[in-house]
Design a protein around this nucleic acid. Structure first.
Length: 356
DNA sequence: GATCCGTGGCA
DNA sequence: TTGCCAAGGAT
């Protein structure tokens, strides 16, 4: 590698990680299943957020077999609040696949492991290197940031095609003696030293190898184009109770936003100027044949997703008709509701209702 | 390649 | 307050 003493770089990086790595629950051992779970949870999600979820999840589902045999409702409930719920549905499906097709052992080749649902290029490399010591690249956002600075790579890291450039770089740099620590060290460095804004270059174990530091351009890298703004969507939702005090909930479709999570009945306001309570009442009858007496609005909620914003006007009401329960439509008591995974937006609605 | 898919923290 | 993010993958 041009302008870089690879052996010295590996040594400085791995020595630093050996000494300075954070103690984390998924670093207690290298059980491929636990490495796998942690890597899925850590996708686009901060370490501090993941820690309690990881501990609970492993307690509930300690092994491939335990997770493979679990009901999806329980699995989704364990993921409630973490976001990107397709991650856990894919993990669940993939774990069943490993149990059935690989005798319960997580595959140890790039070809096999990459076929598992939810396992892309990053996760494949992470599991192979950390759990099995295979020298494969594991290029995430941290790695692209760190290496863009060390090697002064000016490609736009927001473009999917750019990842290949960094994978090629890692193949030339990775330690074959300890690929696990090499990959983890790059990510750890990105997380606690080589941060997006104001990197701590004076504390960096590899600053002598860093071209951006030498040129004083570390804050100009990486190059990353901006995201688009979220779209706003106006919703009206109802927390409806029957004469027994049971609450009406609806299971969302199996694909798309918040797939398979439960929610309070709601509908998008296509005509924002028309009376919302009327639109909501019409929706309840036409969609669910539920006649309800809606009270005045009990509040409003704004919920921000990565790509859209929900503005929800929340109503409460009494169910006047009989409800025909279906697989995706249930009446549950407040206590039973605890068994169902709700999106955070609907947890906010419930809290609003209970304090009303 | 562009878009979809969550959430909470922080400058 | 607003934007931007944080150990990505599927379509």
């Amino acid at each position: 590698m041009k302008n870089l003493d690879v052996s010295s770089f590996q040594n400085d990086l791995i020595s630093w990680f050996t000494k300075e790595q954070r103690t984390l629950p998924w670093r207690q051992d290298t059980d491929p299943y636990k490495v796998w779970v942690s890597e899925i949870m850590l996708q686009q999600t901060r370490v501090d957020t993941v820690i309690p979820y990881f501990n609970r999840f492993i307690r509930q589902f300690p092994s491939i077999d335990a997770l493979a045999e679990a009901d999806e409702e329980r699995v989704l409930k364990a993921w409630e609040g973490l976001g990107y719920y397709s991650r856990v549905r894919n993990l669940h499906a993939a774990v069943k696949e490993v149990k059935e097709q690989y005798g319960g052992k997580v595959p140890d080749t790039p070809e096999a492991i990459s076929k598992l649902q939810g396992v892309g290029p990053y996760t494949s490399g992470a599991i192979l290197s950390i759990a099995y010591g295979v020298p494969e690249p594991a290029v995430d956002g941290n790695v692209m940031r760190v290496l863009s600075r060390i090697l002064t790579i000016w490609e736009d890291i927001a473009k999917p095609s750019t990842r290949k450039i960094f994978e090629e770089a890692v193949r030339q740099l990775i330690s074959h003696e300890n690929p696990s620590y090499f990959n983890q060290a790059l990510m750890e460095l990105g997380a606690i030293v080589c941060t997006p804004t104001s990197p701590s270059c004076l504390l960096c174990p590899v600053r002598n190898h860093c071209q951006a530091f030498h040129q004083g351009v570390q804050t100009d890298l990486p190059v990353k184009t901006k995201n688009k703004k979220q779209k706003r969507v106006q919703l009206a939702a109802a927390i409806l109770v029957n004469e027994e005090g049971k609450i009406l909930i609806h299971k969302r479709p199996g694909s798309g936003l918040l797939a398979n999570l439960w929610e309070f009945p709601n509908t998008e306001m296509i005509m924002p100027l028309r009376n919302e309570k009327e639109q909501l009442g019409d929706f309840l009858i036409s969609e669910w044949k539920v006649e309800a007496e809606l009270k005045d609005q009990i509040g409003q909620i704004e919920h921000i997703f990565s790509h859209l914003i929900w503005n929800i006007n929340v109503f409460s009401g009494m169910i006047l008709s009989d409800v025909e329960e279906q697989a995706n439509l249930k009446l549950v008591s407040l206590k039973e509701l605890e068994q169902y995974a709700l999106p955070v937006s609907h947890q906010k609605m419930l809290k609003l209702y209970l304090s009303d």
